[in-house]
Nucleic acid binder design. Structure first.
Ligand code: MN
Ligand code: MN
Ligand code: ZN
Ligand code: ZN
Lengths: 149, 149
DNA sequence: CTGCAAATGAAATTAATTTTCAATAAGTGA
DNA sequence: TCACTTATTGAAAATTAATTTCATTTGCAG
């Protein structure tokens, strides 16, 4: 995480963006979170470390990081709040627990063939894709069982 | 579309929901639209036929229809506005043009094996999934070409 | 250091969605 | 057909999310 932060920081500087303590704080929170965060949730956490920060800065930083491809979004059903997410370097899919909202990254994508097929069938030039599986993690299933369904 | 409307109406009545002219109007608009609509866009179109309708009614009807599984949502990048969508009966995927936002339904889903594999690997009980391909339709590609990239 | 463009944050603004509540109307059953 | 009951409607207010403005601050190149 230390290393990754440095990597990100150097990448940002390289693209002409300034490194501010606010951005550092936001990056730290994102880096140490293992799930997804709404802008508001992120703001709450960042404020503990950096109380003076404004929510606007969070939004702006998120836009920036998303633009640089350093973070990505998840779109969940049920209230389309756009969630935030720490992004592994490579393309991946998501497995989301409908009970506790835990998110598991699925690294192995084999949609290439499917994409090619669809491209051939529709004439689209496929740029990217989004795959989310929604289900119940074993922990949540056991909870449900314990409470008699 | 006539037929489908009737089917939906009878299903709603069967579940104890009343059929109001507002709901009819909304259903008609959804049925004759071939793409996705935001609540606001839907509202605009419905008002032409039924000027007295309120936006609230649109939201409520959308919630109702979504709850009944008669429509579904699409989650697009870039402003997580939750789009609305006419729903074929069966599960399907989406192919979205990043140029003109046209949406193509992809009926043939063969994610079952993948879901089973993931389930086995992670202990999740997979409930459903969401697949979206994003790309450029041929029309938009030609536009781009005409303008010299 | 200095200077300047980039970045910040308070506040106002816009936009989307939900809640409230009194009035209305759909469907039911006499 | 005629109430009657209850779901539904819609205006308005209230929430909530996100963006814009703009004066002030600050990172960092020179
Ligand atoms: Mn991920
Ligand atoms: Mn569809
Ligand atoms: Zn993939
Ligand atoms: Zn599928």
């Amino acid at each position: 995480m230390e290393v990754k932060d440095k990597h990100i920081v150097s990448m940002m500087r390289h693209q002409g963006h300034k490194i501010t303590p606010q951005r550092r704080a936001i990056l730290n929170v994102i880096a140490r979170s293992d799930g997804h965060l709404t802008p508001a949730a992120l703001y709450q956490r960042v404020k503990q470390r950096y109380p003076r920060i404004g929510l606007v800065t969070v939004y702006r930083t998120l836009d920036l990081l998303a633009g640089l491809g350093l973070i990505c979004r998840v779109h969940t059903d049920g209230g389309c709040r756009n969630y935030l997410l720490r992004r592994p370097e490579e393309h991946h899919h998501h497995l989301i627990c409908s009970g506790c909202a835990k998110v598991v990254d699925l690294a192995d994508c084999n949609m290439a063939a499917e994409a090619a097929r669809i491209s051939g069938k529709t004439g689209f030039e496929i740029e990217r894709h989004l795959v989310e599986f929604i289900g119940r993690c074993s922990h949540c299933r056991q909870m449900a069982l314990a409470k008699g369904f």
